[in-house]
Every structure is written in C-alpha cells, then in structure tokens.
C-alpha cells in the first residue's frame, strides 16, 4: 500500500494543523474503512494522521451529562462497558454489530459516522438517542446534531482541518429506552440493507411522551423521521400506532436497488424494523420497571 507519510500527533492542535490546507492528509481512527479503501485503491491520501494518541479522542466518560465517547474509541471498549449497555442498549448493540471480534478491536463510532456510508450501523442508533457531535477545527469548536453530520454518501459537514472529537449521548429521561435492528442478507458480517433505531419515553401510565425514529440504508444518509415519532407520541404503542410509524418510515425512505435488495423490499422492511424496534424499546422500559 503506497503512502508517503504517517504521523500520530499527541494533541488536537497538531492533528488539525496536519489535516488543514488541502495537503491530501486524512485522519485515521481504527482504519477498518480507511485502510481497506486505501488497499482497494479507492483512496490514496498523501498523509495519514493517526488520531489515537490524542487523549480526547480515546476518552470515555459517563456522568450526569451522559456519555461522552471519544471519536476513536474502539467498539469493543464500548460494548464491554455494562453501564453504557444498560443505559443505551440500542446504541451499544448497533456499534457491536459492526464486523467481527477483530473489527470490534478497532472500529470506532466516530469512524462509522465520518465514513458516511448510508448503511453505517451505529448512526441510526446514535441519532435516535439524540447524539451530538463535538467538532474541533482551526476556527474553534462547534457541535452538530448527529442527524445533520452526514451530507450524502461518503460526505459530511467537516470543514478544512476539522476533526470529530467526541460523540455525546445525553442521559435518557426516566422510562426511556432505545433499540436498533438491521436487516442483512446473511446472519452476521454483512452490510445492512435496512437499519432502524428507535428511542421511546413512556409516562407512568404507559403513554409514549417522546420518541425518536431514525432509519439507515434506505436514503443517501441515515434519516431522522419525525413523522414516525409523531405517530408514536401520545399512543400506548398499540398495533395501529406502530403500523402508522412504520408507514411514515416507508414514506420517508428513498432507497436504491442493488444486489443486496430491491428498493421495494427495503421500503417494506423499513416499516417492519421500525415497528419491531419500537416494540423492543417499549418492552425494555416495561420490563425494567
């Protein structure tokens, strides 16, 4: 694999400097997308800037503000954390679905987001759980909602020299749970043809007071579907409301047909997965209280 330069700066400032100015430099997290793409000749950066020596990118903190997950923290570190798995079972499972045990040793939620594949598994779950992206760049720091980060297949909102530093998941309200489901043609190690992330909040009487529904692999980017959430809010997640939420997801989808599945199939399955993920989130709340 031809590459002119590798560096592993220990600070954000040095990494931003290395990446800025259109010099053909590209950040490296776990490399499970980037190094594959370089080997296949799909990308040939002049300089690979390894972000894994920057403490902020590798930090993980869970406190009253929720989870702050360094953008380069490997999946295996997240899924091994029982507190994270208990608080965000859907996001944790979505991240854990990426690749094999070996891929889990490297793949990061930040890399999954920045690679900007429409089928990235952790992204609908991140959006459903109100994820926020902390970005640092030569012009300072900013935050972007997870649903606004990706702008198309392979493209995102980061400007010159900007780095995704961390993902923030706010602590869920009481009686809230999330869930993520994907459909793959095989039983494991495959790319989603549909993904659905759902977060549900119930009041004491079992009425849904808040909901977020996000879908993946059925549009150029993962999509937040407020119409699907609206169909759930105010209901007890009865069959009719789940049906309506699924129909809203189908209406929001604009999938392509490829060797993994036709557009028609994806449109149909996205409704099924939204319904099932909502039902799983619902049972997670009722079973834990």
């Amino acid at each position: 694999m031809s590459l002119a330069q590798y560096s592993s700066p220990p600070t954000l400032a040095e990494a931003m400097q290395a990446l800025a100015g259109g010099t053909g430099a590209r950040p490296l997290a776990g490399g499970t997308d980037l190094l594959v793409q370089m080997k296949l000749g799909l990308r040939s950066p002049a300089h690979v800037v390894d972000l894994k020596r920057i403490p902020d990118l590798m930090a993980l903190t869970l406190d009253d503000n929720g989870l702050r997950l360094g953008a380069a923290v490997p999946g295996a570190v997240v899924t091994a954390n029982a507190d994270i798995a208990r608080t965000w079972p859907g996001f944790t499972e979505a991240l854990g679905l990426i690749g094999s045990s070996q891929v889990q040793g490297r793949c990061s939620a930040g890399g999954n987001l920045c690679n900007a594949s429409p089928a990235a598994d952790s992204v609908p779950a991140l959006i459903a759980s109100r994820g926020v992206c902390h970005i640092a760049g030569p012009g300072g720091e900013r935050t972007v909602a997870a649903e606004d980060f990706t702008t198309g297949p392979g493209t995102h909102c980061l400007g010159d020299g900007e780095i995704l530093v961390a993902l923030q998941l706010p602590l869920p309200a009481p009686r809230t749970a999330d869930a993520y489901l994907r459909m793959i043609p095989r039983t494991e190690m495959d790319i989603a043809i549909v993904g659905a992330g759902v977060s549900i909040t119930l009041d004491e009487s079992g009425v849904c007071t808040d909901a977020r529904v996000a879908i993946g692999a059925v549009a150029p980017t993962a999509l937040l579907v407020p119409e699907a959430a609206a169909a759930l809010i105010g209901s007890t997640l009865d069959a009719d409301s789940l049906q309506a939420a699924g129909a809203a997801a189908t209406a929001a989808a604009s999938p392509i047909s490829d060797k993994r599945g036709t557009a028609e199939y994806r449109r149909k399955v996205v409704a099924v997965l939204v319904r099932r993920a909502a039902a799983i989130a619902h049972s997670r709340i009722t079973e834990s209280t």
């Binding site: 590798y6 776990g30 499970t32 190094l35 070996q102 040793g105």
Partner: peptide
C-alpha cells in the same frame, strides 16, 4: 482486507486484524 481473520493478533490486548493496522 479484514474479512478472514488469518492475521489476528493482539495489539495492547485488543484482538485486531494485523492487515488493517499500520
């Protein structure tokens, strides 16, 4: 390319594909 696992090693204790590590 990360699919077969023949190159598995531990890097700082984490199981990884050494073909996808510089």
């Amino acid at each position: 390319t990360g699919d077969c696992g023949a190159c598995s090693v531990l890097l700082d204790g984490a199981l990884v594909c050494s073909c996808l590590v510089l």
